[in-house]
Design a protein around this nucleic acid. Structure first.
Lengths: 248, 248
DNA sequence: AAATAATATATGATATTTCAAAAATGCATC
DNA sequence: GATGCATTTTTGAAATATCATATATTATTT
């Protein structure tokens, strides 16, 4: 089992500063989270607490704690007595997620337009370039991560961490599907990539424009996802149900 | 030992009504959540896992699992090695929460205007009446609950459970402060109570109006809260810090 | 009396254990 | 070959055990 690199390595080395040594549960939580965000587990996959514990060389207890957190966020589902599973989003649920994201992303973009620094805008340019390069090289996983970093940089520039957390949560919910079918959904090489338009609006400090562009990007991406979902690219198939047994 | 199948599995009572028997952790989670939402624990209070376990007549394990979920949602904070605590919100954080709630609540109100049934509108009238009665009787806790039920009924009528969950989360974050200082912040008896205006807009099926009213209500309430926070009504004082010790 | 040091206790983090239920497996039957 | 049943294995839930550290208490010093 490969160890998963954190999305944002710069922010990781807590050990180095000795600031926030985190608990085992927390470390496992973030590794699982990244795994879900990068599509390591297809929708429908069942996770075994004990196997994960073995993988991470720990006992089941901290794994359970991590899983409980992800369940609470909706990133995993867990019926009493059954194995935790990566949820299989319905199209309806996916649309619900998108519609909830829309006003949050708009707000984030608007706030960022006011608060973002030139340095951060420069970073956006670099991230977008990395994204384009990875796409060209057909390195999907890296492209996905660059794209995420691009968007999260904007969110964080809103300087409202509550808002950031809300949006992160929603990403996580749709994460497995998106990552899983990412290679199939990249957009046709358009005139000008939406990211570039966003960067432009940000540097011209036009909040409403930035908000509008972000929302448009979100909606357009979602159409492609929904197409794929309709086409049935949906992840691991459910195991066939045998006759219902009495629950515990 | 073979497990004996019941005579008629399909009619198992739990499944039949769609009830999900929940685990101990889940039950403890919801009790803690309600406790936080109704102001049982003041901001700053420290919770002891073992004491809670004793209170609920269980072992520490499920309590920990419940606490981890609340920590993940931001309803509790937990530094490695220290006791879980009810966070002490800064005014800045509180404003962040409010600003994030604004677009979500507006969206929820708009969607509800389209989807809410007459029955639900009737329920809103009853809840508001209950709220007014409890206030008159100075039964703060019951008033608080009625008020919550009122708003959550609107959220749920949006028919977007992702959206509902996001908003619930944000309520939870500000829950302890609001409940804790509730008696101090009720509004001066105005001309017409905002709730009534909202009900009216809903029944006239005017989305933008309903959204606008909800947002206005939210903002006005928040001003009173912030006043109180500035006045220092803030919860349990932090224990005095002793000389810093080396972390683990 | 106040501040510090020393000790005792309570606590959180994790591993281990136990148990009943779920999933997998193998076998017999059609 | 598929299908239904019994057995075995695996699994999650929860309790308990253990350990190091945080907190509380007491003793000691200034």
């Amino acid at each position: 089992m490969p160890s998963i690199a954190p999305l944002n390595p710069e922010l990781d080395p807590d050990e180095a500063i000795g600031l926030t040594r985190d608990s085992l549960s927390e470390r496992i939580y973030s590794r699982l989270r990244v795994a879900l965000l990068t599509g390591l587990y297809a929708p429908g996959t069942r996770l075994s607490i004990r196997k994960l514990a073995a993988t991470y060389h720990t006992s089941p207890t901290p794994v359970r704690e991590a899983i409980f957190q992800l369940v609470r966020e909706g990133a995993l589902e867990l019926k009493l007595g059954y194995q935790p599973r990566v949820p299989q989003l319905s199209i309806e649920q996916y649309i619900n997620i998108r519609e909830t994201r829309v006003p949050l992303e708009r707000l984030a973009a608007e706030l960022s337009t006011v608060n973002i620094t030139e340095t951060e805008i420069q970073k956006l340019r670099e991230l977008h370039q990395a994204f384009v390069d990875c796409e060209k090289a057909e390195n999907w996983k890296a492209a996905l991560i660059a794209n995420q970093e691009f968007h999260f940089t904007i969110y964080r520039a809103s300087r409202n961490d509550i808002l950031v957390r809300c949006i992160e949560n929603l990403w996580l919910l749709a994460g497995p599907i998106i990552s899983y079918q990412y290679p199939h959904i990249r957009q046709a090489a358009a005139e000008t990539h939406p990211h570039l338009l966003v960067i432009d609006a940000l540097s011209r400090r036009s909040p409403s424009e930035a908000g509008e562009l972000i929302v448009r990007d979100l909606r357009e991406g979602s159409y492609r996802i929904i197409e794929q979902m309709k086409a049935g690219v949906v992840g691991e198939p459910q195991k066939k149900m045998r006759k219902a047994r009495a629950p515990r």
